[in-house]
Write a protein that binds this DNA or RNA. Structure first.
Length: 561
RNA sequence: GGCCAGUUGGUGAAGUGGCUUAACACACUGCCCUUUCACGGCAGCAUUCACGAGUUCGAAUCUCGUACUGGUCACCA
């Protein structure tokens, strides 16, 4: 009996050698190369591990945001790993796009890929395609242990198995008695390899579908699932590993403690847990996040899609000029809805000071609410200082509105005055949700724009041309004085109203509307529209002050005299 | 079809057996304030927590079943 065992063991070793002729090290080598991290108790090591498909998706950004936050909270490490084991997914400059997006959102990494060609940190390489030898070493070890084997099945054969399974209503997959290559003798395997037959490497799964395995998910709690009994592929015919294998090897070697990923990964977790167990490693803690959803064209919920939904791409926010901070605040409210209330109590603090908790995450995928984001953005922008807003706006327009950019640069002091209207006070104005709104709502404050825009004047209640002329004329010849303070200015408006037969306060007007031609708001509106063309603007007094006498009179002369 | 998860208002959600005649925020509606708009203030907006049954003195909260939604079952991640 002992002798037979020995023979089998020897052949496994021989098989492994012939399958992996290029492997130089044993697994001990890598275990020593990437030692346990020396971190304090409770420190979380997590990672953002995207495929280089171009840009970062909203859902991924949420994950990356949390993956960054938790290590920061616990004194751990956050690193970026690129999962490029599938050539078909890889896009030109995919890595650069991801790095740029993370940078744009100020998500800094402690370790990992920092450019198309560079990485930092002691646990690399951080690009999976550069880790081929490592995967082979571990696959070889598994073959030696009899826990993996070469599979010679062609795609056609796999398809054949599948259709028989479907017909018989059996579970689909390569497992148990369906796994043809599982039962080949080592002699045959070696011979076929020597004959030059192509093969892939499959796990010889020790699992039993009737046994249960428990996943203690950080956000969902206990999930019980059948053990994995699929002989999943470990190494593909291109020599690179499949996600399942790569994830287990990498996250062990990189000493990852927490894995955050979408809930679509839950079904394959038993397989990952099994791999960790086979190797005798401690599995990381898993947090499976709900997907970010959106209401589709047909009215049904569906996953926010990179291809169909512009708002899924982070570039969307960049182009609109939605502050990255606002997006991050929104992400924080999605991640932990109690954040909003906390923030309300801690206005002077930021999301960095807030303690994120996995247990407070919503289980089901949340609908992406652009409206809500815009509201957060509005509030955020309203708290910015004029100087700060100016800098952001200059940066924004440099890329997206060169004309406005030039105007802002030409007269910074004036631009600051405009931006400061009803700002930097206890109850600041909240009308800009994105930087692209600023020109839209304040173009009339800039003479260069005012002169060139096509203008339409809507005087609201008063439509009689002579009456409009009369009001404007009267105001600017007899009342307007740029040196008036707010109170004086307003008193003059009242006098003007009274003189022309309008009520100078709303109360009187409401009591006896028939006694008046209108009320003071009508007068104010006429002046407002005459100067700006807009019926809705910030405080009229401030506007007149900022615009200044010269520009105002020029506008009046042109249009009314 | 198998396996898994989810289901509280238009939206995000709080809620872990009695303090819930279900917080809070966004949106919406009305009123007030007001030189317009925005801000701000007040009020309204789920007689009810997918449905059914059970446990209990008592359930949105525990159990079971049903329905629906989503995920997954690749040499993709």
């Amino acid at each position: 009996m002992n002798i037979i065992k020995l023979v089998i063991f020897m052949t496994n070793k021989e098989l492994a050698d012939i399958m992996f002729p290029n492997v130089k090290h044993d697994i001990e080598y890598y275990e020593n190369l990437y030692p346990e991290r020396n971190l304090k108790e409770g420190a979380v090591v997590s990672r953002f591990a995207p495929s280089p498909t171009g840009f970062v998706h909203m859902g991924s950004l949420l994950a990356a945001f949390i993956e960054r936050k938790v290590p920061k909270q616990t004194g751990g490490v956050f690193f970026l790993r690129i999962e490029d084991t599938d050539g078909k997914r890889t896009v030109e400059n995919g890595i650069g796009g991801i790095i740029a997006d993370l940078k744009a959102f100020h998500i800094d990494i402690d370790e990992g890929v920092i450019s198309e060609t560079e990485s930092k940190g002691e646990y690399g390489p951080y690009i999976q395609s550069e880790r081929k030898e490592i995967y082979e070493t571990y696959a070889k070890y598994l073959v030696e242990q009899g826990l993996a084997y070469p599979c010679f099945c062609t795609p056609e054969e796999i398809e054949e198995i599948r259709s028989v399974q479907e017909k018989k209503k059996d579970r689909i997959g390569y497992y148990g008695r369906w796994a043809k290559c599982k039962y080949l003798s080592n002699e045959e395997r070696i011979e076929r390899i020597k004959n030059g037959e192509k093969f892939i490497v499959r796990l010889n799964s020790p699992g039993n579908f009737d046994n249960k395995v428990v996943l203690n998910d950080l956000v969902r709690g206990r999930i019980e699932m059948p053990e994995n009994d699929m002989d999943i592929v470990l190494i593909k015919s291109d020599g690179l590993p499949l996600y399942h294998f790569a994830h287990v090897i990498d996250d062990h070697l990189m000493r990852t403690t927490h894995v955050l990923r979408g809930e679509e990964w839950i079904p394959s977790t038993p397989c990952h847990l099994q791999l960790f167990k086979i190797f005798g490693w401690k599995a990381p803690k898993y947090a499976h996040l709900g997907l970010v959803m959106k209401i589709g064209e047909d009215g049904a919920r569906r996953k926010l899609s990179k291809r169909k939904d512009p708002e899924a791409a982070v570039s969307f926010y960049h182009e609109k000029g939605i502050p990255v901070e606002a997006v991050k605040y929104y992400l924080m409210t999605i991640a932990n809805s109690n954040f909003e209330a906390w923030w309300d109590q801690n206005k002077d603090k930021t999301y960095d000071d807030f303690t994120f908790d996995f247990k407070k995450m919503s289980l089901s995928g949340s609908l992406f609410d652009l409206e809500k984001l815009l509201n957060i953005s509005k509030n955020y922008i309203s708290t910015m200082k004029a100087e700060e807003l100016y800098d952001e706006l200059v940066t924004y327009t440099e890329e997206f509105d060169s004309e406005f950019h030039q105007i802002l640069k030409n007269d910074k002091d004036y631009a600051l005055k405009v931006l400061n209207i009803e700002r930097e006070k206890k109850k600041p104005r909240k009308d800009y949700a994105m930087y692209s709104d600023i020109r839209k709502y304040s173009w009339y404050m800039f003479d260069e724009l005012f002169e060139k825009e096509e203008k339409t004047y809507d005087f609201q209640n008063i439509n009689d041309k002579d009456e409009i002329k009369n009001i404007v004329n009267e105001y600017f010849t007899n009342y307007y004085d740029e040196n008036d303070d707010h109170e004086t200015w307003f008193n003059k408006m009242k006098e003007l109203a009274k003189k022309l037969g309008y009520a100078d306060n709303m109360k009187d007007y409401k009591e006896n509307p028939d006694n008046y031609k209108g009320n003071i708001t009508d007068i104010a509106t006429v002046i407002r529209v005459a100067i700006t063309t807009q019926a809705q603007t910030p405080d009229l007094y401030e506007i007149l002050q900022v615009l200044g006498k010269d520009s105002i009179l020029k506008r009046i002369e042109k249009e009314y005299y």
